[in-house]
Design a protein around this nucleic acid. Structure first.
Lengths: 127, 127
DNA sequence: GCGCCAATACGAAAAGGTTCGTTGACTTAC
DNA sequence: GTAAGTCAACGAACCTTTTCGTATTGGCGC
């Protein structure tokens, strides 16, 4: 599998919509985005075309409304992004990242115990 | 304190040098960067000027070699970046972030126990 | 068939990021 | 004091990202 480029901010916003909604037409993406931030229809279209060129999304050229879909599953893209931040800003230190993540905002009890569970599972898996 | 803009990739690379070395001249930053990636002297200079305009660095206009310094401590900038990624890619889910961080590459036993310690300290602090 | 509508394609323009060549100013070594 | 070297300033060139106006297409209702 060829390595996909890191999505830009605007591209990521569109990917988020695709991950949440599943395959969507330009109009659907456009409407979803406009719930939070107004953007022109053609702007969204242009991005989807660019992302298609880059391979970030696939498209089904259905007549009268192409249907776009994220190429990578959400988790995979997230992994790339975390990895990237880890290298660029944390010299690879995972604990540094977790530390700053926690001090950047309140975490709920549920989140903490979820993280603990992840750690347990991880150790079991690695061992 | 005015909010500082998010550093770009190239800017972050320079900040990393400043954090590691402390206050430095353009030449020192340039040399440090060239250990990993060759860049023209004037390119580095230009970035430091831009970053100075943006307020990312302060400078001491010593005669014959201005001395630049990161405005934010490393941890503070890291926190902003994590926060940003959290919002842009993880819908704010901290556990999602930790999960992908762990699956993105091997973590050592030391790192894991360090993370556990961070969790413990955090809970104590919050309670 | 003809005009209307929703959609795509195209391309230009604005904004931001990145790189570097050139210039002029000052320092030190001779 | 002159040449050689180091430095900051400036601005041009280039690339990528972001935004959108305009043109074009193709089906549908009449």
């Amino acid at each position: 599998m060829a390595k996909l480029p890191k999505p830009t901010d605007a591209e990521l916003a569109i990917l988020r919509v695709l991950w949440q909604r599943g395959p969507s037409t330009v109009r659907q993406v456009h409407d979803a985005l406009n719930a939070t931030k107004k953007t022109g229809y053609t702007t969204v279209l242009k991005f989807l075309q660019i992302m298609h060129e880059k391979g970030l999304v696939t498209r089904d050229e259905a007549p009268y409304a192409h249907v776009y879909q994220a190429r990578q599953p959400r988790e995979e893209a997230q992994r790339t992004l975390v990895q990237d931040l880890l290298n660029r800003a944390f010299e690879g230190s995972m604990s540094g990242l977790v530390l700053q993540a926690l001090s950047s905002r309140k975490a709920s009890k549920e989140e903490l115990s979820q993280i603990r569970k992840i750690l347990r599972d991880y150790e079991r898996g690695v061992k």
